[in-house]
Amino acid sequence: MSGHSTHENRHVVSFKTYLATGTALLILTAATVGVSFIKLGGWNAIAAVGIACLKAILVAFVFMHLLYDKKIFLVIFSVAIIFLTIFLALTMFDILSRGEIYPDYEEPIEKNAVIYKKAEPAPTGEPVEDSTPKNH
């Protein structure tokens, strides 16, 4: 069925390709659910995100026609991913490296947070998490 094209010379993807992609997506869904039940430690998260990326690539390249359409659309999509990665990476770098040079600065915010709680008594140096969850 492949080889069709519309009057604008737009590629028409074959039915088989679509069906195969859909099937692959369902198989990958089964795989990611299955993997989540195996204890792999840190690899669980990597596997989950990895499979999700693979699925997203399938959707973008076949269903959204990135593979067949103008390459500029692929560039736009990649730019979105790159800048999201920058956002995530630099923010996480701050979060994870707090307290590395001056240990006093580690989690300063939550430990001092008691000052924002008007109703509560003065801070005792205990972390705030002991007071939540509330409204038992």
Binding site: T32, W43, N44, A48, A52, K55, V59, F63
Partner: peptide
């Protein structure tokens, strides 16, 4: 509309493992 709908699908593809499948 198709492009938009696939995006909605794609976001769910990430939400699902991140929220439901924390190993």
């Amino acid at each position: 509309t198709g492009l938009y709908w696939h995006l909605v699908d794609m976001i769910w593809i990430f939400l699902f493992p991140l929220l439901y499948l924390i190993g």
